[in-house]
Simulated assay, not measured.
Amino acid sequence: MTAQEFTYPEVGATRNAERPDGYRHLRQRMLVGRGPAEFRNAADAVMEFWMHRAIPVRVDASAPRAAPGVSVVIGLGAGPLRLRAPCRIVWTREEERYAGWAYGTLPGHPESGEESFVVHLDDEGDVWLTVTAFSRPATAAARLAGPFGRLFQRAYARRCGTVLRRLARG
């Protein structure tokens, strides 16, 4: 997997929460549960794409679980109006108290950049979802969307938290 396959050069930057210049930045942190059982449920929901499917968006992934190199196409809308957003997973993290991944945009995606979804069990037993992204419009339609694109991205991140809260509780 090389940076040339992606539509942006800073592949993997969300792993360390970098904020590359020239992009819009997003970081949303939401409480989604409490305790190890809810962490495990949330981690599985993120790693197996259930959080995204429950939003609901269509997720076509080349594997049932997130892993580097897995192709993911997110579909929003229905029928001929469905927006297809091709991505590839650039990194994953699965540890005792962390689980998550990031995908980077591929040609055909309306945006250019990267977005990560990480679940964390903190020292107090709270389970958090953090969505981190950097992006910029890659198509004329995305540029025309202007501030609505940013509003949509924030609403999408908040919806991820709401859905994951429900999935974490089982």
Rank of each mutant, 00 (worst) to 15 (best):
T2F: 13
Q4N: 12
Q4L: 13
E5K: 15
E5Y: 15
T7V: 08
E10W: 07
E10C: 02
G12L: 14
A13F: 12
A13H: 12
N16P: 00
A17Y: 14
E18I: 03
E18G: 13
R19N: 04
D21Q: 10
G22L: 13
G22P: 05
G22C: 10
R24G: 06
R24Q: 10
R24L: 12
R24I: 05
L26I: 07
Q28D: 11
G33N: 04
E38C: 01
N41A: 13
N41I: 04
A42V: 02
A43Q: 09
M47W: 03
M47D: 04
W50C: 05
H52T: 01
H52D: 05
I55V: 05
P56R: 05
V57L: 07
V59I: 14
V59Y: 01
A61M: 06
A67F: 07
V70N: 10
S71Q: 15
S71F: 12
S71D: 15
V73G: 12
I74K: 08
L76H: 06
G79T: 00
P80C: 00
P80K: 01
L81E: 11
L83V: 08
L83N: 04
R84V: 04
A85M: 15
C87W: 11
I89E: 09
V90R: 14
W91C: 02
Y98H: 09
A99G: 02
Y103Q: 08
L106A: 13
E111Q: 15
G113Q: 12
E114H: 14
V118I: 07
V118D: 04
D122C: 01
V127S: 09
T130Y: 04
T130H: 01
V131D: 02
V131K: 01
A133K: 03
P137E: 04
A138M: 09
A138W: 10
A138E: 09
T139W: 09
A145F: 03
G146C: 06
P147L: 08
G149Y: 08
G149H: 08
R150L: 05
R150Y: 03
F152M: 09
A155W: 13
A155P: 01
A155F: 06
R159P: 00
C160E: 07
T162F: 03
L167M: 03
